[in-house]
Computed example of a mutant assay.
Amino acid sequence: MMTEEKRTIHVLKDEKLGVDREYVAVDRAANVGEMIVIVEPENTSGDVANAGHYGLIIEDDSVKNALIADFKGFDNHFVLDDGIQRVGEAGNYYHVLEPTDIVHIDGERYRLEDRKAEVGERVFYVNKENGKSDGIDTIVTSAGVDIVYVREYKDDTGEAVCSICHGYYYVLTPVQDATEPKESDVITVLANLGAEVAELKRTVAHHQAEFNALREQLAKVASGGGTKMELTGNFIADIIIGLKKAGL
Protein backbone atom coordinates (compact mmCIF):
# COMPACT_ATOMS: atom_id res chain seq x y z
CA MET A 1 0.00 0.00 0.00
CA MET A 2 1.32 3.46 -0.86
CA THR A 3 2.45 5.86 1.82
CA GLU A 4 0.56 9.11 2.25
CA GLU A 5 2.17 12.28 0.90
CA LYS A 6 -0.05 15.34 1.17
CA ARG A 7 1.03 18.52 -0.60
CA THR A 8 4.72 17.87 -0.05
CA ILE A 9 6.85 20.51 -1.79
CA HIS A 10 9.72 19.31 -3.98
CA VAL A 11 12.19 21.78 -5.50
CA LEU A 12 13.66 20.64 -8.81
CA LYS A 13 15.06 22.37 -11.85
CA ASP A 14 12.53 23.13 -14.54
CA GLU A 15 14.52 22.28 -17.67
CA LYS A 16 12.30 24.41 -19.90
CA LEU A 17 12.45 27.53 -17.74
CA GLY A 18 16.04 26.99 -16.69
CA VAL A 19 15.34 27.74 -13.01
CA ASP A 20 14.46 25.79 -9.87
CA ARG A 21 10.73 25.34 -9.43
CA GLU A 22 8.44 24.08 -6.69
CA TYR A 23 6.38 20.97 -7.39
CA VAL A 24 3.66 19.23 -5.40
CA ALA A 25 3.32 15.43 -5.25
CA VAL A 26 -0.07 14.16 -6.44
CA ASP A 27 -1.32 10.58 -6.20
CA ARG A 28 -2.46 9.82 -9.76
CA ALA A 29 -1.33 7.99 -12.90
CA ALA A 30 1.56 9.66 -14.71
CA ASN A 31 1.77 10.63 -18.36
CA VAL A 32 4.79 10.56 -20.66
CA GLY A 33 6.93 13.64 -20.07
CA GLU A 34 5.95 14.07 -16.42
CA MET A 35 8.27 13.78 -13.42
CA ILE A 36 7.54 11.41 -10.57
CA VAL A 37 8.83 10.72 -7.07
CA ILE A 38 8.98 7.21 -5.63
CA VAL A 39 6.99 6.93 -2.41
CA GLU A 40 7.19 3.15 -1.87
CA PRO A 41 9.49 0.81 -3.83
CA GLU A 42 8.03 -2.36 -5.32
CA ASN A 43 10.83 -4.46 -3.82
CA THR A 44 13.95 -3.99 -1.74
CA SER A 45 16.49 -5.82 -3.88
CA GLY A 46 18.68 -2.71 -4.07
CA ASP A 47 18.76 -2.37 -7.85
CA VAL A 48 15.59 -0.29 -8.16
CA ALA A 49 14.51 3.25 -7.30
CA ASN A 50 14.04 3.91 -3.62
CA ALA A 51 11.61 6.18 -1.81
CA GLY A 52 12.42 9.84 -2.48
CA HIS A 53 14.09 9.21 -5.86
CA TYR A 54 12.97 11.24 -8.85
CA GLY A 55 12.36 10.07 -12.39
CA LEU A 56 11.02 11.22 -15.77
CA ILE A 57 8.40 9.14 -17.57
CA ILE A 58 9.73 8.50 -21.08
CA GLU A 59 7.48 5.71 -22.38
CA ASP A 60 4.14 4.04 -21.79
CA ASP A 61 4.56 0.25 -21.81
CA SER A 62 0.93 -0.70 -22.36
CA VAL A 63 1.80 -4.37 -22.89
CA LYS A 64 2.95 -4.76 -19.29
CA ASN A 65 0.60 -2.09 -18.00
CA ALA A 66 3.53 -0.07 -16.73
CA LEU A 67 5.48 3.09 -17.45
CA ILE A 68 9.17 3.39 -18.23
CA ALA A 69 11.00 6.06 -16.27
CA ASP A 70 14.46 7.56 -16.61
CA PHE A 71 16.03 8.17 -13.21
CA LYS A 72 19.26 9.73 -14.48
CA GLY A 73 20.05 13.39 -13.85
CA PHE A 74 18.35 13.67 -10.46
CA ASP A 75 21.30 12.89 -8.18
CA ASN A 76 19.79 9.46 -7.54
CA HIS A 77 22.04 6.58 -6.49
CA PHE A 78 21.46 3.34 -8.36
CA VAL A 79 23.07 -0.06 -8.92
CA LEU A 80 21.79 -0.07 -12.50
CA ASP A 81 24.01 1.95 -14.82
CA ASP A 82 21.42 3.18 -17.33
CA GLY A 83 18.88 4.38 -14.75
CA ILE A 84 15.94 3.13 -16.86
CA GLN A 85 13.24 1.28 -14.95
CA ARG A 86 9.61 0.27 -15.23
CA VAL A 87 7.27 1.70 -12.62
CA GLY A 88 3.70 0.91 -11.72
CA GLU A 89 3.73 -2.81 -12.48
CA ALA A 90 2.60 -3.57 -8.94
CA GLY A 91 0.36 -0.51 -8.74
CA ASN A 92 0.94 3.22 -8.42
CA TYR A 93 3.84 3.29 -5.98
CA TYR A 94 4.88 6.75 -7.17
CA HIS A 95 3.40 10.24 -7.07
CA VAL A 96 3.33 12.66 -9.98
CA LEU A 97 5.14 15.98 -9.53
CA GLU A 98 2.91 18.82 -10.71
CA PRO A 99 4.54 22.24 -11.20
CA THR A 100 3.41 25.24 -9.14
CA ASP A 101 3.84 28.90 -10.11
CA ILE A 102 6.66 29.37 -7.55
CA VAL A 103 10.30 29.46 -8.72
CA HIS A 104 13.59 29.96 -6.86
CA ILE A 105 16.11 32.52 -8.10
CA ASP A 106 19.25 33.43 -6.15
CA GLY A 107 17.79 31.83 -3.03
CA GLU A 108 14.56 33.87 -3.17
CA ARG A 109 11.03 32.66 -3.97
CA TYR A 110 9.05 34.32 -6.76
CA ARG A 111 5.57 33.78 -8.20
CA LEU A 112 5.30 33.56 -11.99
CA GLU A 113 2.63 35.99 -13.18
CA ASP A 114 1.52 36.16 -16.81
CA ARG A 115 0.65 39.86 -17.08
CA LYS A 116 2.04 43.18 -18.28
CA ALA A 117 5.00 44.27 -16.21
CA GLU A 118 5.46 47.68 -14.63
CA VAL A 119 8.64 49.74 -14.39
CA GLY A 120 10.98 48.32 -11.76
CA GLU A 121 9.53 44.81 -11.78
CA ARG A 122 11.64 41.72 -12.41
CA VAL A 123 10.87 39.62 -15.51
CA PHE A 124 12.34 36.88 -17.65
CA TYR A 125 11.70 35.91 -21.24
CA VAL A 126 9.71 32.80 -22.11
CA ASN A 127 8.65 31.44 -25.49
CA LYS A 128 4.95 30.87 -24.93
CA GLU A 129 4.78 28.48 -27.89
CA ASN A 130 7.08 25.87 -26.37
CA GLY A 131 7.36 27.16 -22.78
CA LYS A 132 11.15 27.46 -22.96
CA SER A 133 13.23 30.22 -21.41
CA ASP A 134 16.89 31.08 -20.99
CA GLY A 135 16.21 31.51 -17.27
CA ILE A 136 17.87 34.93 -17.17
CA ASP A 137 15.95 37.56 -15.22
CA THR A 138 16.18 41.31 -15.69
CA ILE A 139 14.49 44.56 -14.61
CA VAL A 140 11.93 46.59 -16.56
CA THR A 141 13.19 50.14 -17.20
CA SER A 142 10.18 51.42 -19.18
CA ALA A 143 6.99 50.05 -20.68
CA GLY A 144 5.56 50.62 -24.15
CA VAL A 145 2.33 49.68 -25.86
CA ASP A 146 3.63 46.40 -27.25
CA ILE A 147 6.93 45.83 -25.41
CA VAL A 148 8.83 46.45 -22.21
CA TYR A 149 12.37 47.81 -22.21
CA VAL A 150 14.71 46.04 -19.82
CA ARG A 151 18.23 46.24 -18.53
CA GLU A 152 20.32 44.86 -21.33
CA TYR A 153 21.60 41.32 -20.92
CA LYS A 154 22.92 38.52 -23.12
CA ASP A 155 20.76 35.47 -23.60
CA ASP A 156 22.00 31.88 -23.76
CA THR A 157 23.06 32.39 -27.40
CA GLY A 158 25.13 35.47 -26.56
CA GLU A 159 22.70 37.87 -28.22
CA ALA A 160 22.07 41.19 -26.45
CA VAL A 161 18.49 41.71 -25.26
CA CYS A 162 17.11 45.13 -24.33
CA SER A 163 13.36 44.68 -24.89
CA ILE A 164 10.73 41.93 -24.71
CA CYS A 165 7.29 41.84 -26.31
CA HIS A 166 4.25 41.64 -24.06
CA GLY A 167 3.12 38.03 -23.76
CA TYR A 168 6.67 36.70 -24.00
CA TYR A 169 7.78 37.07 -20.42
CA TYR A 170 6.74 36.24 -16.87
CA VAL A 171 6.65 38.82 -14.10
CA LEU A 172 8.54 37.61 -11.02
CA THR A 173 6.66 38.72 -7.92
CA PRO A 174 8.48 38.13 -4.60
CA VAL A 175 6.74 35.68 -2.28
CA GLN A 176 6.73 36.75 1.35
CA ASP A 177 7.06 33.76 3.67
CA ALA A 178 4.89 33.85 6.76
CA THR A 179 6.98 34.54 9.86
CA GLU A 180 6.19 33.99 13.50
CA PRO A 181 5.89 37.12 15.65
CA LYS A 182 9.00 38.02 17.62
CA GLU A 183 8.95 38.14 21.40
CA SER A 184 9.63 41.90 21.28
CA ASP A 185 6.56 42.38 19.05
CA VAL A 186 4.36 40.54 21.54
CA ILE A 187 5.71 42.63 24.43
CA THR A 188 5.00 45.84 22.50
CA VAL A 189 1.43 44.77 21.76
CA LEU A 190 0.82 43.89 25.42
CA ALA A 191 2.29 47.23 26.57
CA ASN A 192 0.06 49.16 24.17
CA LEU A 193 -2.94 47.15 25.29
CA GLY A 194 -2.15 47.90 28.94
CA ALA A 195 -1.93 51.64 28.20
CA GLU A 196 -5.30 51.57 26.42
CA VAL A 197 -6.91 49.72 29.35
CA ALA A 198 -5.50 52.29 31.81
CA GLU A 199 -6.85 55.17 29.70
CA LEU A 200 -10.25 53.49 29.54
CA LYS A 201 -10.32 53.12 33.33
CA ARG A 202 -9.52 56.84 33.76
CA THR A 203 -12.33 57.75 31.36
CA VAL A 204 -14.81 55.55 33.19
CA ALA A 205 -13.78 57.01 36.54
CA HIS A 206 -14.22 60.57 35.20
CA HIS A 207 -17.72 59.82 33.88
CA GLN A 208 -18.61 58.13 37.16
CA ALA A 209 -17.65 61.29 39.09
CA GLU A 210 -19.79 63.44 36.78
CA PHE A 211 -22.67 61.02 37.16
CA ASN A 212 -22.38 61.04 40.97
CA ALA A 213 -22.45 64.84 41.05
CA LEU A 214 -25.51 64.91 38.81
CA ARG A 215 -27.26 62.34 40.98
CA GLU A 216 -26.64 64.47 44.09
CA GLN A 217 -28.18 67.51 42.42
CA LEU A 218 -31.23 65.52 41.36
CA ALA A 219 -31.57 64.23 44.89
CA LYS A 220 -31.75 67.84 46.14
CA VAL A 221 -34.58 68.55 43.73
CA ALA A 222 -36.44 65.49 44.85
CA SER A 223 -36.10 66.58 48.51
CA GLY A 224 -37.26 70.16 47.82
CA GLY A 225 -33.81 71.74 48.06
CA GLY A 226 -32.78 74.76 45.97
CA THR A 227 -34.78 77.77 44.78
CA LYS A 228 -37.32 77.93 41.99
CA MET A 229 -34.88 80.04 39.99
CA GLU A 230 -32.17 77.39 40.30
CA LEU A 231 -34.58 74.71 39.11
CA THR A 232 -35.76 76.60 36.05
CA GLY A 233 -32.50 78.24 35.07
CA ASN A 234 -28.99 77.50 36.36
CA PHE A 235 -29.86 74.06 37.64
CA ILE A 236 -31.31 72.87 34.34
CA ALA A 237 -28.20 74.17 32.58
CA ASP A 238 -26.03 72.26 35.04
CA ILE A 239 -28.01 69.09 34.37
CA ILE A 240 -27.51 69.41 30.60
CA ILE A 241 -23.78 70.04 31.04
CA GLY A 242 -23.50 67.09 33.39
CA LEU A 243 -25.28 64.80 30.94
CA LYS A 244 -22.92 65.84 28.16
CA LYS A 245 -19.86 65.29 30.32
CA ALA A 246 -21.13 61.86 31.27
CA GLY A 247 -21.55 61.03 27.60
CA LEU A 248 -25.33 60.63 27.94
Rank of each mutant, 00 (worst) to 15 (best):
residue 112 L to C: 01
residue 129 E to V: 11
residue 110 Y to T: 03
residue 132 K to N: 09
residue 117 A to V: 06
residue 114 D to V: 09
residue 123 V to A: 05
residue 99 P to Q: 09
residue 104 H to T: 11
residue 138 T to W: 02
residue 112 L to A: 01
residue 136 I to Q: 11
residue 126 V to P: 05
residue 123 V to F: 07
residue 135 G to R: 00
residue 100 T to C: 08
residue 90 A to R: 13
residue 102 I to T: 15
residue 122 R to F: 04
residue 104 H to F: 04
residue 107 G to Q: 02
residue 96 V to N: 13
residue 134 D to N: 06
residue 93 Y to E: 14
residue 94 Y to P: 05
residue 127 N to F: 08
residue 89 E to R: 15
residue 118 E to M: 02
residue 132 K to T: 15
residue 106 D to A: 13
residue 113 E to S: 14
residue 95 H to L: 09
residue 100 T to W: 02
residue 119 V to P: 02
residue 133 S to R: 04
residue 107 G to D: 05
residue 98 E to F: 00
residue 131 G to D: 11
residue 113 E to N: 14
residue 99 P to W: 06
residue 111 R to N: 04
residue 102 I to G: 10
residue 120 G to F: 08
residue 105 I to W: 05
residue 123 V to E: 04
residue 115 R to W: 01
residue 93 Y to T: 14
residue 105 I to N: 03
residue 129 E to Y: 12
residue 97 L to G: 04
residue 106 D to F: 03
residue 99 P to D: 10
residue 107 G to A: 02
residue 102 I to K: 14
residue 121 E to C: 00
residue 125 Y to E: 12
residue 130 N to P: 02
residue 94 Y to F: 14
residue 130 N to C: 01
residue 110 Y to L: 02
residue 137 D to C: 05
residue 131 G to Y: 05
residue 93 Y to L: 15
residue 125 Y to K: 15
residue 96 V to Q: 12
residue 99 P to L: 06
residue 93 Y to R: 15
residue 124 F to K: 04
residue 111 R to L: 08
residue 132 K to V: 09
residue 112 L to P: 01
residue 107 G to L: 05
residue 129 E to W: 10
residue 99 P to E: 08
residue 122 R to Q: 12
residue 129 E to H: 08
residue 90 A to V: 11
residue 101 D to M: 12
residue 123 V to R: 08
residue 114 D to I: 08
residue 97 L to P: 06
residue 92 N to A: 14
residue 125 Y to S: 13
residue 100 T to S: 11
residue 127 N to S: 15
residue 127 N to R: 11
residue 120 G to H: 06
residue 89 E to Q: 13
residue 103 V to W: 04
residue 126 V to E: 12
residue 121 E to Y: 05
residue 96 V to M: 10
residue 115 R to D: 06
residue 89 E to G: 12
residue 119 V to W: 03
residue 138 T to K: 00
residue 104 H to N: 11
residue 131 G to S: 10
residue 89 E to C: 06
residue 123 V to Q: 09
residue 133 S to M: 07
residue 96 V to Y: 13
residue 118 E to W: 00
residue 127 N to Q: 10
residue 121 E to S: 03
residue 108 E to G: 02
residue 109 R to L: 15
residue 138 T to F: 00
residue 111 R to S: 07
residue 109 R to Y: 08
residue 117 A to Y: 00
residue 116 K to N: 14
residue 137 D to A: 12
